[in-house]
Design a protein around this nucleic acid. Sequence first.
DNA 1: CCCTGGGCCTAACGATCGTTAGGTACGGGG
DNA 2: CCCCGTACCTAACGATCGTTAGGCCCAGGG
Lengths: 212, 212
Amino acid sequence: MAAAEPGSAAPARRPGVPARRSGDRRAELVAVASRLFREHGYHGVGMRAIAEAAGIQAASLYHHFMNKEELLLEAIFVVDRDLIVEQLPLLDGPGDHRERLAALVRGHVLHIGDHRNAWWVASRELRALSPDRLDAVQVYRRRYQHRIAEFLVDGVRAGEFRCEDPRLATLAILDMINGVNEWYVPSGRLGITELAERYARMVLCQLGAGKL
Amino acid sequence: MAAAEPGSAAPARRPGVPARRSGDRRAELVAVASRLFREHGYHGVGMRAIAEAAGIQAASLYHHFMNKEELLLEAIFVVDRDLIVEQLPLLDGPGDHRERLAALVRGHVLHIGDHRNAWWVASRELRALSPDRLDAVQVYRRRYQHRIAEFLVDGVRAGEFRCEDPRLATLAILDMINGVNEWYVPSGRLGITELAERYARMVLCQLGAGKL
DNA sequence: CCCTGGGCCTAACGATCGTTAGGTACGGGG
DNA sequence: CCCCGTACCTAACGATCGTTAGGCCCAGGG
């Protein structure tokens, strides 16, 4: 996924050189598509543009994907799958509620930093999915959101958080974190690890659990 | 702008009936375009679709706008102009820093509620603007952001806010507020005025200036 | 050695894209 | 009454869209 992140032009694939592994090539193409979707939007990029950026012809993409929408879906799912299988378990890990929530926030910010293109696409181009695909993605997303809201309620009950409306606070916090990928660039004032740390602190502060 | 917000179909304009005022018709068309841009994205909507939703033919749009991009620019500028001329002055109004910031947050949330389509477009479709148009919009946006960061510094100096990095806090707060228009629907659990009030409180809380 | 299949190619399809040219109907001002 | 500007129309342009059909080339297995 993070393989072809830089704006690399066509890598001039020589005919006989196999693309490492079959699944690798697929992931490469998804990464290329993610970058272009991010830059111009799903409908702003044609199959020919994606193919050119990958160094092949448009028709060749159909040997890897059924259609354009499958490319989009795969790009989006990278993000949502990771949220569930990597982030959510952090809430059941060691430490008090403060520490566990901080770990989730840090992980979330770092994940955004590692998959900027996919995150952008995942948040802006959902509407281009067909209704049933869209539902599948939103199930994942709601699961993440509901689990966090539940965790906030637990934290309030444990006396670690102060928060008058956990559901609204969840939305506000997630929007705040996801906002990172609107303006973050690796060359910016703050590195992604500093950002992760500061956002963890800001979130705790917002829940009345700040240390400063 | 908020004139034709509902998802109205073609209003069946009879030939001889003038469209009230010349500028009104323009604003109506921008509102229709905003809604469609929001639903399908800038590149996902054709001039023919916009025209049909407005009850006219595609070619007729070119009597009101030079090209498709001008429609987009007009939709976006509604938002950014209002931010500068209506929101920023609130920071120089009466009250202490807490009250003035709360007023800005409330106004910001209410503005989002009143111009949902335009806000959506303004935050997602900037990339479709040509570089010089994009610059013009971003000048407005940066002015808003810098003024708020400056205000936070003042508030910290006055001992009303606690915040280790005002520039980062500004980004986080703005992303949090703008997130409202990702999920807000008028029929939701909370009305827009309640949301405005709660967001004002959450922002103050995040700055260590909460009352609870 | 032949065969199979993955990965890519060229060429083309019908549809839709943004945009333009040129014309019509009508209300208001001279 | 005539004329002008506004608002809209029909028809069409070249380009680009997503997608398909069919074929070539090469690596690996029998």
